[in-house]
Design a protein around this nucleic acid. Structure first.
Lengths: 352, 352
DNA sequence: ATAACGTCTGCAAGCGCTTTCAAAATTACA
DNA sequence: TGTAATTTTGAAAGCGCTTGCAGACGTTAT
């Protein structure tokens, strides 16, 4: 059979393709006068090699500007060097920020991420996972997945998993459960400390684990102070501005009294803020508002939003590191710093 | 040599790996009693196959739940089925939204994107491109790249390119140049139509092509009305909230008079809004403010921000489609709808 | 010197799929 | 019914890299 001329970078004939000087291991080997195995070994440091040859090979690599083809490496090693990252919505600043740090974390270990978004829908999420698995990712990072625990455990038997925002115990699952319950409680207690007693809560997506934690935190703070829980003060949101707006509008129009609001995430808080404004209610003059996530934009709302702060960057880094550890068979060591309150200007003591 | 037991999904021994039933073409072929070439052909529809066999193979595929290994396909075909997407900052809602639609667009054609962020720094951008090239992507989508034209042309000889926000002409480059100049002019003219004459401009990153276009649009609108251009009214920003805040603060403190502000992008506008607020200036009461990009959040600022709207989603879709066309040697057909003004509540006529 | 051991290195067999080539099986045509 | 023209198929050669094995070279001990 005569040699093919197909080349990795050869493209459908049109335009002046740059003679695609794709250099292969073989060429380097020939250039250096050694076998390709030797070159490979030098490249991977998998065996001692006589000094002279090593130098010759290095020289050849430099001269030819050789770069190993990761596709071939993947196939030969049976490792794709990619990991899947599933977010719920790429559009949300929260995820975007997390992705950015996951990206850098992964890259450092030479893995490349495949991002996908599940849109808070389990069926979309399933489709994404399917796609990722098919792409042969070596692990999947699931940011606040909404899949049932059972499926996750099942999935973890195929690839290692990193989960954020919830806890699932299984051998190959690492849960970065940054305990939203506790953080939500922190926010609520802050409001309580400021003297507020009628605190409304704008919830997140119905029956989502993380959203549930936030809700529970709210309730437990109330319970902790022996204060009654009033279901009328809880309105459903969807983690988006629009949902927050609608929720707040409903709340106001229902006529329920409240002096403070805790929104399950900052985006909802933005929406709520506008709704309050529309009804002539000033923040924090008439109602105090606190958010959750402390998005970068929250320092620039009017007034700047008080919010629960967690280092998203840290979470991302940690997820990436843990993923690599898991893939390479090390026991991941996770250390997340606790959430804090970014106190800004959207809250104030009830009776100054 | 005895057969290896390495498997694509086989992982470093620990935890109950799920017996990784990785099915290969060969197994399907054996199961169906045909050769692997036949299976491959059926899979790709690259040749007619007798009906009976085709059915047998389909059955075998279904039974074994076979999924071709994309890594092997990539190697054999010399096509990686991946494309690189370079954003400037994953954290920015603008890019996040674009990525989401690029993702879906690409996926539909069975390509997977690799996202990376260049942070508005050419050297970072270069590094990313390097990495992508090394990963053997078949094309790169550069969202508002800041690389010099020369390099882009050079790069386009290696892989096809899609550029947004600027125009570069070369055989394998498609520029999605949605003409920011014109759009910026639109915004400025709107302000002029409202009777404003002292219009400040908060610029984008220094010497960035797209930022420059917006600046030019501002100037040309002024020139179009034979109005003097006042350099004191132009302040440098960086496309981020913080930069907008700083710029506006500087402007106010310099004491220059102005009745309206055009911010080169919405994020800058957010920052500017806060700065105005801090100085007791109401929007739009005391100064009208207009942004650019119409981020999803802009409908929820207080007051909701008037902004230049372009369908980011459309841009993303278009970029993805064009990329696929370019890769597969078709002539991409691009049709972007013009920018419009999303008129909300941050602007008002000067003398009502 | 020679045997007994390391230390290097090249050969060749894969990884799982595509594709060329030529042989085999059909079908068409006289 | 024989032969030419097709259409289907399988064997085998890659794609570019890794790696088990065994031979080639030194070393060191006897």
């Amino acid at each position: 059979m005569k040699p093919r001329k197909r080349r990795m970078t050869k493209l459908p004939a049109d335009g002046p393709t740059d003679a695609a000087p794709v250099v292969t291991l073989e060429m380097v080997a020939r250039e250096a006068g050694v076998s390709s195995s030797t070159v490979s070994r030098i490249l991977n440091g998998t065996a001692r090699v006589r000094d002279g040859k090593a130098r010759a090979v290095q020289a050849a690599i430099a001269k030819l500007r050789f770069q190993p083809n990761p596709v071939a490496q993947s196939l030969a090693r049976g490792k794709s060097m990619t990991v899947g990252v599933l977010t719920q919505s790429l559009e949300s600043p929260f995820y975007a920020e997390a992705l950015a740090s996951i990206e850098t974390g992964l890259l450092r270990a030479n893995y490349s991420p495949f991002f996908m978004s599940g849109h808070w829908r389990d069926e979309d999420e399933r489709r994404c996972v399917e796609h990722l698995l098919n792409r042969r990712v070596e692990g999947i990072i699931l940011l606040t997945s909404c899949l049932p625990e059972r499926e996750l455990v099942e999935l973890s038997r195929q690839v290692p998993l990193i989960l954020t925002g919830r806890r699932v115990d299984a051998p190959r699952i690492v849960s970065l459960d940054y305990d939203s319950t506790q953080s939500a409680r922190l926010a609520t207690e802050y409001l309580l400390d400021q003297g507020h007693r009628q605190i409304a809560f704008i919830a997140g997506p119905h029956d989502h684990p993380d959203a549930l934690q936030r809700y529970n935190g709210y309730k437990s703070a109330l319970a902790g102070r022996k204060l009654p829980f009033n279901a009328k003060l809880v309105v459903a949101g969807d983690y988006y501005d629009g949902g927050g707006y609608a929720a707040m509008t409903r709340l106001i129009e229902a006529g329920t009294k409240f002096t403070a609001v805790f929104a399950a995430n900052d985006q909802s808080a933005y929406g709520a803020m506008l709704a309050l404004h529309r009804h002539g209610l000033g923040v924090p003059r008439d109602v105090s508002l606190i958010g959750f996530d402390d998005l970068p934009g929250s320092a620039f709302t009017i007034p700047p939003l008080t919010s629960v702060h967690r280092s998203i960057d840290e979470i991302g880094q940690c997820a990436a590191l843990a993923m690599v550890d898991l893939i390479e068979g090390r026991a991941p060591l996770i250390r997340l710093s606790a959430a804090t309150l970014a106190i800004r200007e959207s809250t104030r003591p009830l009776h100054p």
